[in-house]
Amino acid sequence: MKNRILKGGIATVIVLATVGFANIKKEVKVESSTITWTGEKVTGSHNGTIDLESGHLMMEDEKIVGGEFVMDMSSITVTDLTGENKGKLEGHLKSEDFFGVEKHPTAKLVITSAAEKGNGKYGVVGDLTIKNETHPITFDLEMNGESASTQLTIDRSKYNVRYGSGSFFDNLGDKTIYDNFELDINLKF
């Protein structure tokens, strides 16, 4: 009888410990999440959106421990232009000059670690893959209930997106497009 009680107690402790430290997958509601981009050139800037295809955060004890997000690169739109100019720029961004969406339809961010900084803010380390090129990235992410937000600065030249880059081409003058572009990400869970 004592042996049964002891075994039952040990089993209960193991189950509770496992449940207490279990990772929980927090799925993103892609239809209500947004990604906006801004790219700058010598003579101005353009902006638009990219759709999130899928995503989740891994949570342990209500803290971020990992995650993965997939962006649908074929969904790139331009929001600051209309008509023919809008169509031309969207087509160019989807071409091999930029993101080559026919060969590379998605981009992916994998969170490899996150450290809580307090007040819902995390320092995040991850791997970003664009055009089959993967590089580490660090950023702050702010959690607020069932939403999260961050701003990423990405150096496109690291991902073989070189069109109009002053880092690779000389004498571009006012045709130079800056290497860094910004993503403003708002996630809903």
Rank of each mutant, 00 (worst) to 15 (best):
T176H: 08
F189V: 11
N47K: 08
K7R: 15
D61S: 13
E84M: 13
K103D: 12
R156D: 08
K29I: 10
M73L: 09
F98A: 10
A17E: 06
K94D: 05
D179Q: 11
G120E: 01
N47Y: 04
G67Y: 00
T12A: 15
A22G: 06
K158E: 14
K41H: 14
S113L: 07
S75W: 00
E84L: 14
A22N: 07
L57N: 03
S113Q: 05
L128Y: 00
I76L: 05
E53H: 02
M71Q: 09
M1C: 12
D51N: 08
T43N: 13
W37C: 02
T82P: 08
L128V: 01
G120K: 01
K108N: 07
E60F: 06
E142A: 11
V78C: 10
A11R: 11
T106Q: 01
T82M: 13
G166H: 07
E27Y: 07
N186L: 13
G87L: 11
I24V: 12
A22V: 09
I185R: 01
G87F: 08
L183D: 08
Y178N: 10
E96Y: 12
L93A: 12
F21I: 13
D140Q: 12
V19K: 07
G91Q: 04
I111T: 02
G126V: 00
T34K: 00
D140P: 05
E133K: 06
L57C: 00
I137C: 04
Q151D: 15
M73H: 04
D97I: 08
G123D: 06
D174T: 06
I154D: 05
K158C: 15
I177W: 10
G20A: 09
I111C: 02
K88Y: 11
S74M: 12
